[in-house]
Amino acid sequence: MKKLLLGEQGLLVIFALAFALVSVLVPNFLTERNMLGLLQSVVTAGIVACTMMFCLAARDFDLSVGSTVAFTGMVAVMVSNATGSIPLGLLAALACGWAVGFINGFVIAKFNINTLITTLATMQVVRGLALIASDGRAVGINDPAFINTALSKPSGIPTPIWVLVALFALFGFVLNRTVFGKNTLAIGGNPEASRLAGVKVDRTRIHIFALQGLACAIAGILLTSRITSGQPNAAVGLELSVISACVLGGVSLAGGRATMTGVIVGVMIMGMAENAMNLLNIPAFYQYLVRGVILLLAVLLDNLRSSALGHR
C-alpha cells in the first residue's frame, strides 16, 4: 500500500481512489451530464496549467495569467464586435496574449528582473487594460456564431473539452519529445549548466512566457464564448489555482521536474473537489478551505515521496 501511494504513479492511484469514493458517496456525481460539466469547469484552469507547467519546470512562474485570460477575452469580443469578423477577433486576442507573455519573458530574461515582481506588475497592468477597454462593464457578444463556439458539440462533446484534450496531448508531446521541452526541463534543473551546454536559456524562457500568453488567450476566448460576454473581472485568482493544480500534479517549484499526466491529475482533483462540494450544496466559503487543505496535503505527500525515492 505504502509502495503504491508513494511510487511514481502515487498521485494517479490517489485520484482513482478519490474518484471511486466520490462516485459512491455523492449522488448524481457519476452521470454523463455531471461528467461533462466537471470537464467544462476545468477547461480554463486546464489550458493555462499546460503552459504554467513549462514555466514552473524552468524555475519560473507567471502570476499574470488570470488578468491575461480576462483581457484577451475582452479583446476577442470588442474586436469582433467592431469589425464584424470573428476570425479577426480571435486573431487579435491571440496576438495580445502572445504579446503579454513575450513582454513578461523579455523583461525577466533580458533585464534579469525578478519573476514575481514582473508578473505581479503585468498582472495589474493587464487587468487595468481590460477594465479601461470595457469601462468596467461586461461587453456582450453581438454575433451568435461566437457564442456557438463554446456551445457546439461535435460528437456530443462540447468544443472547449475537445480543445482541452488536444492541448493536453500537444503539450505532453512538446514536453517529452521536443528539444524545446527537454531544454525547459534542463534549464529548471541547472540554468548555468544548461547555458554552458549551449542551450539558449534566455530565448527559451521568452518562448515559454509567450506560449503561456497564447494559452491564456485560448482559455480567454473559450471562457468569453461560454459566458456570452467579455467580463473584465473574469478569472480573478486563476493564477493561484493553476499553480496549485500544477504543484498538486508533482511539478517541482524548484524546477526540472514536471509531467503532463501529473498536471492533468492535479487539475482533475481540484475540479472534482469543487464539483462534489457543489453537488453536496456546501457553501462556497468552505470550498476555499478545502482547496487549501488539499494543496497542503499534496505537498506533504510529495515531500514523503521524494524522501522515499531518496532512500533507494
Binding site: 521536443t178 527537454k182 534543473g189 549548466a193 551546454a197 526540472g256
Partner: peptide, 25 residues
Amino acid sequence: IVQGRSIEENITISSRRHSSRWGIL
C-alpha cells in the same frame, strides 16, 4: 551537470540537435 535529469539527458543535451528534426527528438 543538470541535476534531477537522467544520464541520457545530460549526455544528449547538446548533441540532440543532430538527431532531431524540426525540433522533434
